[in-house]
Simulated scan of single mutants.
Amino acid sequence: MAPKPTPQDQTLIDSWLDAIWIEKGLSDATLSSYRTDLELFARWGAVHKVSLDRVSGGDLRQYLAFRLQEQQLSARSTARFLSCSRSFYAWLLRESRIKQDPTALIESPKQRRTLPKSLTERDVERLLAAPDIGDPLGLRDRTMLEILYACGLRVSELTHLVLSDVNLRQGVVRVLGKGSKERLIPLGDEAANWLQRYAREARPLLLQSPSDVLFPSKRGSRMTRQTFWHRIKHWALVAGIEKDLSPHTLRHAFATHLINHGADLRVVQLLLGHSDLSTTQIYTHVAIERMKNLHAEHHPRA
């Protein structure tokens, strides 16, 4: 078994994570993945007698080859590790703990562009209609699905909503996204109507004590991301949707359907909370693929 990171390396990792948490307000999940990447690198370094602040470009290339050949990690995983490493060594350089950045001449691996999984508009309608709205949990789930699709939220943004985040009079929901960036998103009449009904009929029955959590679990506390993932998979089975769904699938459907109906790409970028337009541009490729499939299916000479 590979040794643990040395105390010196562990201190460097902890200090860097504290620094970027303060500077960038990264999520716990992102910080955890960065910690894992660097600790695995530090373990490899301990075997090869090289500490993180003494790594050369050659050492880094050797580790990348080890990841590829022996651990068989994907190009996407390696790209994430390099992104993490670049930020880590830029910080070490800025703090005058190293004199040269070992990542400076390392190129990220080429990644195959993968289109996000989405749903047709008909599939979305079937999914939204699946929950039993006569049951408080079913009405809660229906409302959560409606808001997820109407607003294109990340699942963590949805489960962290509190009462004060929703303004039904103005028809908007306030979301605190990645990097603690706040954005306002229109609810739409349909989602607003379901939210009013849920707040009136189901939420009081789910709460076991006073709370500002908008969508409590059946125990009355804030729902976890994993719980909602299981709920959406359950309703997909009920709806007869065979695709492997995740809460992110409805976010992809939100963006794809907006673009299919002529929405401006920059508007979609703002609604999704993307800091870079290139992240949003993937949905234009999804729309193009959809048009190709429709052409191939219906054109007599396709």
Rank of each mutant, 00 (worst) to 15 (best):
L205Y: 03
V213I: 14
Q226A: 10
L187F: 07
P186W: 06
G177Q: 03
R183D: 04
E190A: 13
R219H: 10
W194L: 05
G179D: 07
R219S: 12
P186Y: 05
K181Q: 09
N193I: 00
V173Y: 06
N193V: 00
E201W: 04
Q208L: 13
Q170R: 15
S221H: 13
S211V: 02
L176V: 15
R200Q: 12
L184S: 10
P216S: 06
M223K: 04
W194M: 04
Y198F: 12
T224H: 13
E190N: 08
L195Q: 11
P204W: 12
S180R: 14
V175L: 10
L205G: 02
R169N: 14
I185K: 01
P186L: 12
K178T: 13
Q170V: 08
G179H: 11
P210R: 07
R183T: 07
S211K: 01
L176H: 11
R174F: 01
W229M: 05
P216I: 01
L205V: 14
E182C: 04
I185R: 01
E190Y: 08
F215N: 04
S211F: 01
P216T: 03
L168G: 15
M223Q: 09
R200G: 00
Q196S: 14
Q196V: 15
V175M: 11
S209C: 00
G188Q: 04
R225Y: 05
H230M: 13
G177K: 03
T224V: 09
R174K: 14
Q208T: 12
G220E: 02
S180A: 11
L176P: 02
S211L: 03
R174P: 03
A192G: 09
V175Y: 11
D212K: 13
K218C: 03
F228V: 04
G177F: 06
H230Y: 14
R174Q: 14
Q208N: 08
S180H: 10
R200P: 00
L206H: 06
H230T: 12
L205W: 02
G179E: 08
G220Q: 04
H230R: 15
P210T: 08
A192I: 06
L205N: 01
T224G: 15
W229T: 01
Q226W: 02
K178A: 13
R222L: 10
E201K: 10
R169D: 15
R219F: 07
L206F: 08
R222S: 12
L206M: 08
